[in-house]
């Protein structure tokens, strides 16, 4: 057995995927019970896009991290200053 996918690592990742699957089902079930439209929620759309990025191949973690990040504007000091970059108040903050 290689280190790449040992039994221990398989079980750990399997657990994460099962937890993730259950979490998505749970959110949808509760949304249905509460008549909440999930597609209107940016957080739900971000989570769905993050799962799609898992299938993209190497570099997944950077792709997911960047998805959950506010965009960086290199010219931030010339375009009005950092007060423009205050938190919009979503995504867990």
């Amino acid at each position: 057995m290689t280190r790449a996918l040992s039994d221990q690592r398989f079980l750990a990742i399997r657990s994460l995927v099962v937890e993730l699957s259950a979490a998505f089902d749970r959110v949808e079930r509760h949304a249905a019970e509460e008549s909440v439209e999930l597609d209107d929620d940016i957080r739900w759309r971000l989570l769905a896009e993050a799962v799609a990025r898992l299938a993209a191949g190497p570099g997944r973690v950077e792709a997911v991290q960047e998805l959950f990040s506010d965009a960086y504007e290199p010219a931030w000091r010339q375009t009005g200053g950092p007060e423009l970059f205050g938190s919009p108040g979503c995504c867990g903050r």
Partner: peptide, 15 residues
């Protein structure tokens, strides 16, 4: 910064 602010904030700090 902690979450969505981290990437932007880190780059601003480096700037």
């Amino acid at each position: 910064p902690h979450l969505a602010d981290k990437l932007r904030g880190t780059r601003m700090i480096l700037d």
